[in-house]
Computed example of a mutant assay.
Amino acid sequence: MAKEQNDRTTLDLFADEKRPGRPRTSPLSRAAQLKINKRNQLKRDKARGLRRIEIKVEQTVVDALNVLADQQGLSRSELIETILIEKLGCAPETHSA
């Protein structure tokens, strides 16, 4: 029986064949890796004393925040935090990591 190049049902025939692309470095699926990474990020944020808030604003506000953040060399999140701190008149607590 001849080996067909597009026949992938008999994997033992293709065990020594190099496949294109980057080799897998993790046995987990991409979705599982993302879930674990997100969980770890939340743990790091919690350890640093950070809390997540979510707001809905008009697109024009988002655009203005993006421009201002670029001008100041900050992320949008950092800019919003700075504005809130200035407006509320409270200093952020410093945590050593």
Rank of each mutant, 00 (worst) to 15 (best):
V67G: 05
A15Y: 05
G21D: 04
A32V: 09
R8F: 07
Q5K: 05
P92D: 03
A91K: 14
T94A: 13
D12W: 12
R52I: 13
E58K: 08
I83S: 01
V67A: 00
I53G: 14
H95K: 15
T25W: 08
F14V: 07
E58W: 04
S96P: 11
R48E: 11
Q41Y: 11
V62Q: 04
L88D: 05
V67Y: 03
V62C: 04
I80L: 02
L74R: 00
N66E: 03
K56D: 10
A15G: 12
L79G: 03
D70N: 10
G73Y: 01
I55L: 10
L28K: 01
S77C: 00
E78G: 06
G49F: 10
Q33E: 12
V62L: 06
R48N: 14
K43D: 14
T25Q: 11
L84W: 02
K46N: 12
T25N: 09
A15W: 06
K3C: 11
A15T: 13
E54D: 09
I80D: 05
K35T: 15
M1S: 10
T10N: 14
D12C: 09
R52C: 09
E17D: 06
I36C: 02
R51K: 15
L28T: 05
Q59W: 12
P27Q: 11
F14Q: 13
A47H: 15
Q33T: 14
L74S: 01
L11K: 13
A69C: 02
K38N: 15
S26K: 04
R19W: 01
Q5E: 10
K43A: 15
I83E: 05
Q59P: 15
V61W: 10
T10D: 08
D12K: 13
Q59A: 10
L65F: 01
S96H: 13
I80C: 02
E81S: 00
S75N: 06
S29M: 08
E54I: 15
T10C: 07
M1W: 06
E17R: 11
D70Y: 06
D70S: 10
G49L: 13
A91E: 05
L84N: 00
A97Y: 12
L11V: 04
V57Q: 05
F14N: 15
K46V: 03
T10P: 08
D70L: 09
A91Y: 07
I53Y: 15
T82M: 09
T10S: 08
V57R: 09
V62W: 06
I83K: 03
A64V: 08
R51V: 08
